[in-house]
Structure formats: C-alpha cells, structure tokens
C-alpha cells in the first residue's frame, strides 16, 4: 500500500508563503480560501524574541475525525491513504470543519464564477477558466495534489518550497527519503495526543 505523507521542517521554514501561493494557483481555490497557509507568530520577550512560523494544511489523518463525522461519506480515504472530499456527495453541513482539530477545511461560501478577484471588474480569464473546479456549498481542503502525484510530480507546495524544507513521499515505504528524514530529524505530527494519526510530520517544533 502507498501512504503519501509529508514532512515540514519548521526550524528552517522561512515563512515566505511560497507554498501558500503555489497551492493557491495549483488548485485555483476560491477567493479567500487557502488550503495551505503559514501561520506566523512569535515567542519570547524583547530582546529575546523570535518569530515562529507554521505551515498548515490538511494533515491527512489516518484516524481522521472529519471522515468519521461526515454524514454522507463525502469525506473519505483515497487509495493513497489520504483524505479526500467527494464534492458530489457533500451536502455542505460543515460537520467536518468542526471535527478537524487542525482547521484544515474551508467551505465554498460563494460561486467562484461570481466573485472576481479584482473588485468591480469582470473575472480575469484565469479565474473564468478555473472557477468550475470549485462548486459552491461544499467543503474543501488540501488534496495532497493527487492530480500531480498521479503524474509522478511532487505536490506544488513541496516543489516550490524555497528553502527545501518540505519532503513528500510514501510513509509505508521505510526506505523512502521521507521516512528516513522523519526518523533522522525526530519529526512528529501536530497534536499527537488527539490520536488522529496525521500523515504530515513536523521537525523543529518548539514546545
């Protein structure tokens, strides 16, 4: 079995949000929706203060609360062990948004075709071309770039990471670079105590 996962080193991430924008354009998500985002914060007091960054997207839990609560089975596990939403089954109840402890999900509040980026203007051809990918009234989230990985490419956020602080690979293959890196860097998932068994690991977390 393949089980796609990811590793992010927050100790070297520059917080640049290249991944955010790569995801945004790769998936042409609706205005205001970001499947990938980088949360910024800080730690310490002046002059011993530092910034903190935390790239966040769906953690593709193997024991996913969102899948469990979804009334229609729209949220499900795919053949790669990742969590996906079948828009054709989603009734937009937003149970999964509440269930997700990582705030990974977003609802399509409006029809993308009717909300141009540039206020007061028509949609750009780019938006027109891609609006249909996001039906109104369903819940969405990171899809682990399944379209790209099918073609043998890395997810967009991984490929574009300007510091190469992201790794993608098969968690079920102990010889994969991903597994080795997770081991080597002592990476762990976020909020492991919740038992959600995420497929995304983080290195360099400071507690």
């Amino acid at each position: 079995m393949t089980h796609y996962g990811m590793l992010i080193d927050v100790g070297t991430c520059a917080g640049c949000n290249a991944c955010t924008m790569a995801c945004k354009y790769q998936n042409a998500t609706p205005h205001g929706t970001y499947w990938c985002k980088v949360l910024s914060g800080e730690r310490g007091t002046y002059p011993n203060a530092v910034q903190t960054v935390l790239p966040m997207s769906c953690q593709h839990c193997s024991n996913a609360p969102c899948v469990r609560v979804c009334p229609t089975g729209a949220s499900h596990y795919d053949e790669n062990g990742n969590v996906q939403v079948d828009y054709g089954k989603c009734i937009g109840c937003r149970m999964c948004m509440g269930a997700c402890p990582y705030d990974a999900r977003s609802f399509n509040w409006f029809d993308s075709a009717e909300h141009p980026y540039y206020e007061g203007f028509e949609q750009t051809p780019y938006e027109q071309m891609r609006a249909a990918e996001h039906p109104v009234g369903v819940v969405e989230k990171c899809v682990m770039c399944h379209g790209r990985t099918e073609e043998g490419k890395e997810p967009a956020c991984v490929q574009t990471c300007i510091t190469k602080s992201r790794w993608f690979g098969d968690l079920d293959d102990p010889t994969s670079e991903l597994c080795k890196k997770i081991e080597e860097m002592g990476a762990r998932p976020l909020k492991p105590e919740l038992g959600t068994k995420p497929s995304v690991y983080y290195a360099g977390l400071v507690d």
Binding site: C70, T72, I91
Partner: peptide, 22 residues
C-alpha cells in the same frame, strides 16, 4: 443551513453510520 441541500439524499443513500449527524 446546508450548503448543498440538493444532495441531501446522500445521507440516505450512502449514510456514514458513525456520523453523529446520521
């Protein structure tokens, strides 16, 4: 409150029995 009420029948066709909503 449902975003896609037109698919409400999905709750009956493919119900997920562990969902509190079901």
């Amino acid at each position: 409150d449902l975003g896609s009420i037109e698919r409400i029948f999905q709750m009956i066709i493919t119900p997920n029995l562990v969902s509190p909503l079901v």
